[in-house]
Design a protein around this nucleic acid. Structure first.
Length: 461
DNA sequence: GCATGATCATGC
DNA sequence: GCATGATCATGC
C-alpha cells in the first residue's frame, strides 16, 4: 500500500499529521475505519496508526517512524469550566524493562531511542462520544528542551538506580520530577520480574507527568484564541543542579529567620493573614512574582505544604487533603483512587517553628511517601471504604455529637479520617443509609496525615 | 496535652 | 457556592 507521506522524510510526516487538526478520525480517515476492532483504553492511538498513518500498531522498542526515529503519541485533553484546555492525564510512554535498564546508559537507553523525538497528537476527550468523533486539537513534534532534559535524565537515573537496588517494586511516581514511573497494566496483577530481587514488581511505564504535559501543550499551541494552559517562569536550574538543590539553596539563607525578617530582606509586602500567605512567601523566597506560578513546580506537580511546629517539634495541626465523596470511594479501587494519586506526588514541606511565640523558618524538605507507608495509607483507605459501604459510619451519638468508626490516629501511624467541612450540615450523600442514624448524607470528611507521622518521618528524618 | 469532632476565613 | 488551608472546642 502506498503511504500518503514519505516515511523517510520528517517534514512530510509532520505535514501529513498536521492535516488532522480540527478533524475527527471519522472525518480524516477512509470509510474502512468503521470496521475497526479496537476496544479498550488505548485504542485511539491504535486506530490512528492503522487507519491514518497506515501501519500496524506495534510494541517494538524502536520508534514508530523508525526510519527517522520519531515516535507517535496521542493523548486526550479536557476542557475546564472557563473553557481553557488542559491535559486530561499523564502521557504514558514505553514500558520500563527492568531487566535491561540496569545495563544501559541514558543516551543508549531504550527510553531515549524511542522517545527522544515525539510526534504529538492531542484530541479533546468528551464523555459519551465515540472515539471516532473526538476532535483533534493540537498536532506537533516535541523535542525536550535542554533544561528539561537535564531533569529527565536525573529522573531516569533514579528509576534505574532503584531497580539496580532491587527495589523495582517500590517505585513511585513521587520519586521523580518530570519523568514518572506510572503503573501500566490491566490490574494489580500485572507484574514483571526484576533483576536484583525475587519480589515481582508492578509493570510500569515511563510517563510525563500531567503538569509537564500541560507545559507541552502550552508550548506547541503557540498564539491561538483558545487557551492551552500557560507558560510560566522558571527558577532556572543550572546544568549540574537538581531542582531540590536550587530550591533549598534559595531557602537556606532564611533558616532561623522570623517571618518579619524574611519579608524585610525579600522586600516583598504580604498580608500575613491572607489565605495565600505561605504560598506567596514561598514565591518571594524563590524570586517568583506573586501572580505567577513556579514552572518547575507546575511541571513536576509538586505539592507545597506548610507546617507550623510547636517547640517540641510536633506539628500544631494534622495535614488535610481534599474531601472524598462517599458515593465515589465505594466504587473505586485503591490503585485508581484519588488518595493514592495524591500520595504518589512529590511534596515540598516548608517547616516553621514557634520560638518564643514567634514563627521562624526551620527548613524546607522535598519528600515523597515511601512504599511501606503507602501500604499503610492503603489500609486506612480500605477501612474507610468498607465502613461507608456497610453504612456503619456512626458509632454512637453523645450530647448531640456523633462519634464515628472511621480510622483514627490509633488505627494507623500514617493517616486518619476526620471531618473537613464548613459545619456538620455541610455534607455529601451516602451510597448506603447510615445504620445507626438513618442519615442519607454525612458531614464531609477527608484523609489527614498524622502530625506525629509528619514529625517522625518527614521533619526529623 | 492530646484526640476527635466541628468550624472558620479566604478566594475563586 | 464551594474548595482549601487553617483553627477551635471539648472531654478524657
Amino acid at each position: 500500500m502506498k503511504l500518503p507521506y514519505n516515511p523517510k522524510d520528517k517534514k512530510s510526516i509532520i505535514d501529513y499529521a498536521q492535516l488532522l487538526k480540527g478533524k475527527t478520525l471519522r472525518q480524516a480517515c477512509d470509510p474502512s475505519i468503521l470496521k475497526h476492532n479496537y476496544t479498550g483504553k488505548g485504542n485511539f492511538g491504535q486506530i490512528l496508526e492503522k487507519f491514518y498513518f497506515g501501519y500496524d500498531p506495534n510494541s517494538k522498542s524502536e520508534a514508530d517512524f523508525f526510519e527517522i526515529g520519531m515516535e507517535l503519541k496521542s493523548s486526550p485533553l479536557k476542557q475546564l469550566k472557563n473553557n481553557e484546555y488542559r491535559s486530561k492525564e499523564r502521557l504514558v510512554l514505553s514500558i520500563i524493562d527492568y531487566l535491561k535498564i540496569v545495563d544501559q546508559s541514558f543516551d543508549e537507553s531504550d527510553f531515549w531511542k524511542k522517545n527522544a523525538n515525539i510526534l504529538l497528537i492531542f484530541y479533546l476527550h468528551q464523555a459519551g462520544f465515540d472515539i471516532l468523533d473526538y476532535l483533534i486539537k493540537l498536532v506537533d513534534e516535541w523535542n525536550f528542551p535542554n533544561t528539561d532534559l537535564e531533569i529527565i535524565k536525573k529522573d531516569w537515573q533514579l528509576i534505574k538506580q532503584k531497580v539496580a537496588n532491587g527495589k523495582a517494586h517500590e517505585l513511585s511516581e513521587g520519586d521523580t520530577f518530570y519523568l514518572g514511573a506510572c503503573t501500566k497494566g490491566a490490574n494489580a496483577l500485572s507484574v514483571r520480574k526484576q533483576p536484583f530481587s525475587k519480589t515481582p514488581a508492578k509493570q510500569r511505564a515511563y510517563s510525563l507527568k500531567q503538569g509537564y504535559v500541560n507545559h507541552i501543550i502550552a508550548s506547541i499551541a503557540g498564539e491561538t484564541k483558545e487557551v492551552y494552559g500557560k507558560l510560566i517562569p522558571s527558577v532556572a536550574v543550572a546544568k549540574k543542579q537538581t531542582i531540590e538543590e536550587v530550591v533549598i539553596s534559595k531557602f537556606k539563607p532564611y533558616y532561623g529567620k522570623t517571618i518579619e525578617q524574611i519579608l524585610t530582606s525579600t522586600g516583598v509586602e504580604l498580608n500575613t493573614t491572607a489565605k495565600s500567605f505561605y504560598a506567596n512567601l514561598t514565591k518571594a523566597i524563590l524570586g517568583i512574582e506573586l501572580d505567577k506560578e513556579i514552572e518547575e513546580f507546575e511541571k513536576a506537580e509538586i505539592i507545597v505544604k506548610t507546617v507550623r511546629l510547636k517547640e517540641n517539634n510536633l506539628p500544631k495541626e494534622d495535614i488535610s487533603f481534599s474531601n472524598f465523596k462517599y458515593e465515589e470511594i465505594v466504587n473505586e479501587e485503591w490503585d485508581e483512587s484519588n488518595f493514592k494519586d495524591i500520595l504518589e506526588h512529590k511534596f515540598l514541606f516548608v517547616f516553621f517553628q514557634f520560638e518564643n511565640e514567634e514563627l521562624v523558618l526551620r527548613k524546607v524538605k522535598f519528600w515523597n511517601m515511601p512504599y511501606v507507608d503507602i501500604l499503610e495509607a492503603e489500609k486506612v483507605w480500605e477501612e474507610t471504604k468498607s465502613i461507608v459501604s456497610k453504612g456503619k459510619i456512626v458509632r454512637e451519638v453523645k450530647d448531640g455529637i456523633r462519634y464515628t468508626n472511621f480510622p483514627n490516629k490509633s488505627f494507623n501511624s500514617v493517616s486518619h479520617v476526620r471531618p473537613h467541612a464548613t459545619n456538620a450540615a455541610d455534607t455529601y450523600p451516602l451510597p448506603t443509609k447510615d445504620k445507626l442514624t438513618k442519615a442519607k448524607e454525612y458531614t464531609k470528611h477527608c484523609f489527614w496525615l498524622n502530625n506525629t507521622y509528619v514529625r517522625d518521618e518527614i521533619y526529623l528524618k
